[in-house]
Design a protein around this nucleic acid. Structure first.
Length: 204
DNA sequence: CCCTGATTCGC
DNA sequence: GCGAATCAGG
């Protein structure tokens, strides 16, 4: 695969949106995240509040080309890293998750979401719901051996089921391995979406 | 261990 | 120019 204009454009867009290199690579296909990163650098657009690996004043032990890092005689170059230029009126667009439940065994391709929305609609706590006792029991059990990871530790394959009160220190995420694509581990998937199918046929 | 981006360097 | 290998950090 080569970097055609179209592919570069996708790269630009996604990188601009804050997508990770691996996500972009996945999207493009035929390239690795390394390739993406390499390209990004070559194109000049590189860091901007990425993850957390930014402070690199080049403490490396191989400043082979000190000149590169040398100061530019040219005064006021473009102020590249603007703290916060303007508030972009993106399209906040809170996708109405009206997915009561799809009886179809269709698997969603992959809904990649750029980031975790701040006020992310967290899964409903099982309290008010009528969920199979087994599932609930299993959840409580699981929560005892949950990894209790923090927000930062969440990945695509860690259970994102919140446990405890977000307002207190008594709060964490399950963190157990998720179940194939799902955002939660097996136990939590059970209580997370278990719409009517189960309750419908058992209810009457 | 999972992930992230950054850099180097042979091709 | 490209990107695997490697590095550095969370």
């Amino acid at each position: 695969m080569s970097w055609t204009d179209e592919r570069v454009e996708v790269l630009r867009k996604m990188w601009g949106e804050g997508q990770s290199a691996s996500q972009i690579a996945k999207e493009l296909g035929g390239v690795t995240r390394n390739a993406v990163i390499g390209k990004v650098h070559r194109m000049g657009l590189s860091n901007r509040a990425a993850t957390a690996a930014a402070p690199k004043a080049e403490p490396k032990a191989k400043p082979a080309t000190p000149s590169a890092a040398a100061a530019k005689p040219k005064a006021e170059e473009k102020a590249e890293a603007k703290p916060k230029p303007t508030i972009k009126a993106e399209a906040p667009e809170a996708a109405p998750e009206a997915e009561a439940e799809a009886p179809t065994p269709t698997i969603v391709p992959h809904v990649r979401r750029p980031i975790i929305p701040a006020g992310q609609p967290l899964p409903p706590q099982p309290s008010a719901n009528e969920i199979s006792p087994e599932a609930l029991a299993k959840v409580s059990e699981v929560e005892k051996k949950a990894k209790r990871i923090g927000l930062m530790e969440l990945t695509e394959r860690t259970c994102k089921w919140p446990i405890g009160d977000p307002a207190t220190e008594d709060f964490w995420f399950c963190g157990l391995p998720v179940q194939a694509g799902k955002p939660y581990c097996e136990a939590h998937v059970g209580v997370a979406f278990q719409p009517m199918s189960a309750r419908r046929d058992r209810r009457r």
